[in-house]
Amino acid sequence: MAPRGKATENAEGGDQAAPRRSTRIAGIPQPAAAAAATKPAPKKAAAGSSKKRAVEDGDAKAESSAKKSKASSPAEVAEDAAGIIEIGGSLPDLTLKNEKGEDIQVADLAAEKGVVFFLVPKADTPGCTQQACGFRDIYPDFSSHNFEVYCLSADQPTAQAKWQTKKELPYPLLSDPKRTFITALGAGDGGKTKRSHFIFAQGGKLVDKKIPVKPMDSPRLALEFIKTLQEGEP
């Protein structure tokens, strides 16, 4: 009788085990399958995001290109150069020191006479001395045409006064150590001064400029222009 009961238990256990295997497989969804059924498709989301980024990148490139185009337009270039005095521009409202250390109002210098500013890189150097002495030698001709002459440099007034005395320069020297006026004239060059000259008519309007210019040519060219200018006046 015992073997039969054991066989019966085994048979019953087998009958019970078969439905359980069927239930696990067919009746209960597996966690991985459920997650896969509810998870959004990653490729589609990535594709949409990439498309959005591509559009944004395209807009950014278009905007950058537009800015570059605008910056290179004539109007923009003219705006960038607004700080430099061009022909027809006026003397700026600046205060500089002369060789005596006195304050000089630049805007007032052409109130009664025309003005010639000749710019030198450094006082008492060979080329600058040649230019300065050239203006000295024909200084009376400038005076007779109602023009005053000024030497402009970044040297300190003491150095200018010493040079003036040494070379007997008859005109004032203006000190512009920060190169404010020099830069406004367009003669500033990375912490240096370009040899040049600028002519302002009576009233303060710029009528001529030579930049750069050779030391020996500067005085002659300045005087020739002034004579031509006055010959053409009514």
Rank of each mutant, 00 (worst) to 15 (best):
K100N: 14
L152Q: 02
E56L: 12
F147P: 02
A82T: 14
V213H: 05
I226S: 07
Y150E: 02
P40M: 03
A161R: 08
K113A: 13
T183Y: 04
Q202N: 14
G14C: 10
E112F: 06
T95W: 07
P29K: 10
I28G: 10
W163C: 01
E233K: 06
P19I: 10
T95V: 15
G204T: 08
S64Y: 05
T180F: 02
K51T: 00
S73L: 02
A26D: 11
L221H: 08
A184F: 01
P31I: 12
Q156W: 08
S73R: 03
A161T: 05
Q16V: 12
D217H: 05
F117Y: 12
E233F: 13
A111V: 07
K194W: 00
A45W: 04
G114S: 06
Y150T: 06
Q202F: 07
A47D: 14
G127C: 04
L94C: 10
K67T: 04
A184P: 01
F198R: 06
T180K: 13
S218R: 07
P126C: 03
P40I: 06
G203H: 05
A60P: 00
A45P: 01
T8C: 12
D189P: 00
A201D: 12
A34V: 14
S90F: 09
L119R: 07
L169N: 01
G204Y: 15
T180D: 15
V115P: 00
E112Q: 13
I138P: 08
R195Q: 13
P140M: 04
A161P: 00
P215E: 09
Q160L: 14
E231P: 02
K52D: 04
G191Q: 06
